[in-house]
Design a protein around this nucleic acid. Structure first.
Lengths: 130, 130
DNA sequence: GCCATTACTTACATTTTTGTGTGTATCATA
DNA sequence: TATGATACACACAAAAATGTAAGTAATGGC
């Protein structure tokens, strides 16, 4: 896991915020670059490491590993190891993560709409008289 | 605004993800350290810079400025400047941001519950036989 | 013995975010 | 003339996140 300095102001502020605010905590554990992609893939079915890697363009082994570890530590996914060679490891959403799916759907909806609105207003700002 | 290097792989991956995934985009624009605190304060009423600063312990002028600018650029808050001395600037949520409130409430609920579950399972892992 | 496969790990570099401290323009008031 | 209030800006430092490249253990098949 990426080591963090537990005495930094940065770290302490993060803890303080996540500790008193449920949304901030929720956002914090979902906010890694590829985390939502991973969760979204696992929403459909349990998958192996290599499977995820193939279905998420541009992600590297390292980032996938890091994010999977953090998601597991944060209770969003669970990991099942099979005693085989070559190794087989399967990832799936936890019960807790499943509860979030409807919320994700709403956020997705909102995200798409808001992004469109934003694009339009940016376009207007760039060429106001067209 | 914090300058970003538009040619970095980091930056391009972010764009690629936010571009095709509504949730990732939504999370991305809400995910700054103090952003949800700010939004949460503004949910109740419009506020001035100094007012926000006083109500958000530990935040610095700089972080408040940066986040307010980013939230404005991302269409979550709007800024009103009054021609007075000393200056008066008021911030409020946009229509778009207001639509998110019910989603925030659900995430908040989930966050509190999940954090409790997490704490319990971590406690169990540390002292399994108590 | 050599290679392939899988799920990682490690060391290091780059980019981004966050934090610290100080400075600025404006005008009213003391 | 000096001070205070407001909403920032600027330069710099520290920490955290992300990216790049290479390596590892285990074992079955050739």
């Amino acid at each position: 896991m990426a080591k963090r300095k537990e005495t930094s102001t940065n770290h302490m502020n993060r803890e303080y915020i996540n500790d008193e605010c449920g949304i901030a905590y929720a956002i914090d554990i979902m906010a890694g670059r590829w985390k939502l992609k991973i969760l979204y893939k696992l929403e459909k079915k349990t998958m192996r490491f290599r499977e995820l890697k193939e279905r998420i363009p541009n992600i590297t082994d390292r980032m996938l590993t890091l994010h999977l570890q953090e998601l597991e530590a944060d209770g969003l996914i669970s990991r099942t190891v099979y005693a085989e060679v070559p190794p087989r490891v399967e990832y799936q959403l936890t019960e807790s993560a499943l509860l979030l799916i409807p919320v994700w759907d709403q956020m997705n909806e909102w995200g798409h709409q808001h992004r469109e609105k934003q694009r339009q207003s940016v376009d207007l700002a760039v060429k106001p008289a067209s």
